[in-house]
Every structure is written in structure tokens, then in C-alpha cells.
């Protein structure tokens, strides 16, 4: 989503992005002329008249699980976004019985929060696993 019109989105997709991605951009490119939606999400910069680089993870209930906002010159890390989605999906699937410690990626051990884990995380998780 950006403040550009859907017409400009079409030209950008057709003239440039489709040369990077076979078949063009696979998801809808949204237009937020005036920044109303960006303002509601806290990412519209009225001085510059553009959206900042915000990324929101919204779960199937419409609940915000996480976000990241960057200034324009630095791009996102898509792998980190995918990792976070996998982590939130695991937590949702286990209904909170499992939590993902720092550095978790699919396949790595999770934590099972509960009274028996109090003061015992050091036995279950090492700082080296954060990296």
C-alpha cells in the first residue's frame, strides 16, 4: 500500500516489477491516496506526504500480532517476516501452550510456559540459540 494511484501501481508492475517477478506482483497493490489508512495505522508521514515502511502481521481474527516500521532507505527482511508468521502460527495452533524463545526458527525447541518452567529456562534454552 502506498499513496500512489492504482494506475501508477499498474505501470510500475507492468514496466518494472514484472521484469523481476514472473507474472508480476502476485498480491493486490493497494492505493491510499491522502494517507487515510496509513494515518490510522500510524505510518503516514504528513510532512513528506508518503507512507513510511510499515509492515503489519494480522491474524485470522483481524488482531495485530506484530509490526515493524522503517525509514525509507532501508528495505525489509522477508525471511524474518516469514519466521515471525511461522512463530505466531505455532503459538496459535498450540493455543499458547508453546512459546518461541529468541532465535527460534521452525524445528528448534519451543518453551512450554507453566509453573514448572519458572526459573528453569536456563536448563531449556541457551543464549547461543538466540543467533
Amino acid at each position: 500500500m502506498s499513496i500512489d494511484s492504482m494506475f501508477v501501481h499498474k505501470m510500475w508492475n507492468d514496466d518494472e516489477l514484472s521484469k523481476m517477478v514472473d507474472g508480476g506482483v502476485p498480491f493486490p497493490m493497494l492505493s491510499d491516496a491522502g494517507g487515510k489508512v496509513g494515518s490510522a495505522y500510524g505510518v503516514y508521514d504528513p510532512d513528506a506526504g508518503v507512507e513510511t515502511r510499515g509492515r503489519f502481521l494480522i491474524d485470522p481474527d483481524g488482531v495485530l500480532q506484530g509490526y515493524e516500521v522503517l525509514t525509507p532507505p532501508v528495505g525489509r527482511n522477508v525471511n524474518e517476516t516469514l519466521r515471525q508468521i511461522q512463530a505466531f502460527q505455532l503459538v496459535r495452533k498450540t493455543e499458547g501452550a508453546e512459546a518461541t524463545p529468541s532465535g527460534w526458527i521452525p524445528g528448534k525447541p519451543t518453551l512450554k510456559p507453566g509453573i514448572n518452567l519458572v526459573g528453569k529456562v536456563w536448563q531449556e534454552w541457551k543464549t547461543s540459540q538466540a543467533f
Partner: peptide, 14 residues
């Protein structure tokens, strides 16, 4: 699950 991304503008570089 929805990933909603905002960005400064079409044809900007990043």
C-alpha cells in the same frame, strides 16, 4: 493471515 505492507512510493528504489 495478512501481511500488510506500506512503502513510500512506486518507482522508489528500495
Amino acid at each position: 493471515w495478512v501481511v500488510l505492507c506500506f512503502y513510500p512510493g512506486d518507482f522508489t528504489f528500495v
